[in-house]
Simulated assay, not measured.
Amino acid sequence: MFRLRKYLVFFFLIHSFVVLSQESDYHIVNLLPIENDTIEDVNFYVSKIIDNRVYKDNLGIAQKGVFNRKVLSKFDKPFEEELMEYFNVVFPPDSKKEPLVIRVNQLLISEKTGAFKETGKAIANLDVLSFKDDVYYFLESFSGYAEKNSADVTGKHDNRIRQVLKNCLMDFNDIDYKTKPKRPISIEVTSIPVVLNEPLNKGFFTSFSELYANEPFEDSLIKFKDNSHRSNKLFLEDRSHKRTLYYAYSDGENIYLNASNYSGEKHFVKTELIDKYLLFNDAFINQDKATGMSLAFGVLGLLVSNTQSNVLLDLYNGQYYILDNFKIRLLLKNDYPELYKEYKKNSNDVNLLKSILEQLYKGGQSGKIEQILKEP
């Protein structure tokens, strides 16, 4: 018995050491120093970075060593600081030029190992804003994608990140934004989202801010595959469109969220509107789980887990909340045991969960729902 206890203690200590080592073993990305990358012939510079990413503790997955061990990656410096220093070199500050605020909605890297090569990817989605008289104005949204095949792609993630960021800003430089009407937006959203106050417009939303404002664009060239057997998901036909990272799509009746926002998968998942939330069920690993499970799942760009989660997107601020079994139990088990029994029969049934939540809202439980959703 004593020997068994010793083995258990030894196993626990080794396991704890491995977990802690894995969580602290990041691949570090540096955007500086760089040479000959300064662009003088633009009429703007970047004055501020706003981090609006779903995953704020890392940049995605890199692979280390001869066995391609998956680890999380991050900048050597805080996210906003690293980007500001990089943009200051590429687009030097100049009081005669337009100061821009860059709101980064997504910036991820990933690696995929094939039989004879590795593929490194970087994707970005950002909003270009201006700031005047204490008001932020939305100018335009941009997405970038860079991919490179080689024997070892890990050491070049910095190049791909620089490429997508610079391309987004140069795309902005090519548009005549001064002739477009400026739309005021709130960084700390407190007003009622427009999308909740008027009929849903049809088209693609390039970012959360467009979804919030119910301002999609339509393009007849962008088409979905025939997918009648899986009505809860839509798949784009053209590969180039898959890479543009549209935030969401509306068919005029329903909103479909792009899974690339939270997993890197290339499909749009159907949502159900409940109060101020969009409810959906998909393979979703949140920021907390991403850190502890990255080695097992390889998330953030190359999701290989089939773990399904019920998720709520807050239309006021763009925040995702996972409504897992623990939170459902807190909501239902004591006060609504019959509803809890129904939920347990099929926990991934979105329509069932929608019906349950609607009953809670009608019963005056909105405060309790809010409290439980925001608990860690």
Results as ranks from 00 to 15, higher is better:
residue 4 L to Y: 01
residue 12 F to M: 04
residue 12 F to S: 11
residue 13 L to F: 04
residue 15 H to Q: 00
residue 26 Y to P: 02
residue 29 V to M: 01
residue 29 V to Q: 03
residue 36 N to V: 01
residue 57 D to V: 02
residue 59 L to T: 14
residue 61 I to S: 12
residue 62 A to R: 05
residue 67 F to D: 14
residue 68 N to I: 06
residue 69 R to D: 11
residue 72 L to A: 14
residue 74 K to Q: 15
residue 75 F to Q: 13
residue 79 F to I: 13
residue 81 E to K: 15
residue 93 P to F: 06
residue 110 S to P: 07
residue 111 E to V: 12
residue 127 D to C: 00
residue 130 S to M: 06
residue 140 E to F: 04
residue 148 K to L: 09
residue 156 K to D: 09
residue 161 I to F: 11
residue 165 L to G: 02
residue 172 F to H: 12
residue 177 Y to R: 08
residue 184 P to H: 10
residue 200 L to E: 11
residue 211 L to H: 01
residue 213 A to C: 02
residue 226 D to N: 15
residue 227 N to Y: 12
residue 232 N to P: 08
residue 233 K to F: 15
residue 240 S to K: 14
residue 242 K to M: 11
residue 249 Y to T: 00
residue 251 D to C: 12
residue 254 N to M: 14
residue 255 I to D: 02
residue 256 Y to K: 07
residue 260 S to Y: 08
residue 271 T to Y: 04
residue 273 L to A: 05
residue 276 K to T: 05
residue 278 L to I: 12
residue 282 D to I: 01
residue 309 S to D: 06
residue 311 V to L: 12
residue 319 Q to R: 15
residue 320 Y to R: 10
residue 322 I to S: 06
residue 334 N to I: 15
residue 340 Y to C: 03
residue 341 K to A: 07
residue 342 E to M: 06
residue 354 K to I: 03
residue 360 L to A: 08
residue 366 S to G: 01
residue 370 E to M: 02
